[in-house]
Amino acid sequence: MAATQKIGRKSATATTSWGAKRRVSPRATNAIRLGFALGAMALWEGVSRSGLLLHDVVPSLVDIVAAMGRLLVNPAFYANLEITAWEVAASLAVGAAAGIFAGIALGANKFLSRAYEPYVYYLAPTPRIIFFPVMIMWFGVGVASKIALGALSCFFTVALSTAAGMRGIDPVLIRVGKTFRATPWQMAVKIQLPAMRAPVLNGVRLGLGTAVITALLAETKLSNQGLGFMTMQIYSHFDMASLYGLLAIVFLLAGAGNMLIGRLTLGAGRGASFES
């Protein structure tokens, strides 16, 4: 009885702080971000200066920023960046073109989708880097094997996204095209491709991420040029500040590329909804 009263009293006074809340203002959001970044930097610097960990493993932020500065004025950095950028761009061009082609075929035809899409779907989440030995045998140790591996990586993402986009096209648009007696080419160019550009661009954005990762990893494994190769060179000299600096620059560049295509995707999404 006493226990029941106790629970009753507790329940009567209890309130919950869970539940939907409004978004905070952008200024407050930025202030939290700044506070978080400054806190993380202070913690890093504190650990670095405390001697708790080896200074070489956790170098001072000052050393890392100085190393980043040295990298950014080093011509070798730009030469390696150019190679990696070329590999990623070529991977994306080949992989995305093949992926869009396959995605349109799978999305437009139910028979093809049932016959082949399960293979694309289940092969998509496999670790692509394990195909690198095969790519070396087929394309050699140069840039071509990295491009081939990058293209293979982004193919699956783009194909699945395009197929889903193709199936998601509003049937009204297709009927309008048929009413106007549009040719297959006109249907593809005037209706299907514009209607599914948001999922296609989203697939390309995800494909870019996998192409960057795969190309860089392949460079760390076997290469004599590119940012992955540069990472391993710096690692072999145990120059930890430069290693952190280079990784920070690579992460920033990858993030910028991703954000750029993300903006395009958002724009395409808005355009599609406006037109529909």
Binding site: I32, T231, A254
Partner: peptide, 25 residues
Amino acid sequence: RPLRDALEDWIAAVAAAPLVLAFPL
């Protein structure tokens, strides 16, 4: 919620970052 608004985009960016390149570290 403020923490979510501030950090969700960063966490999504981390998901897309080539973290595995940091294996030498």
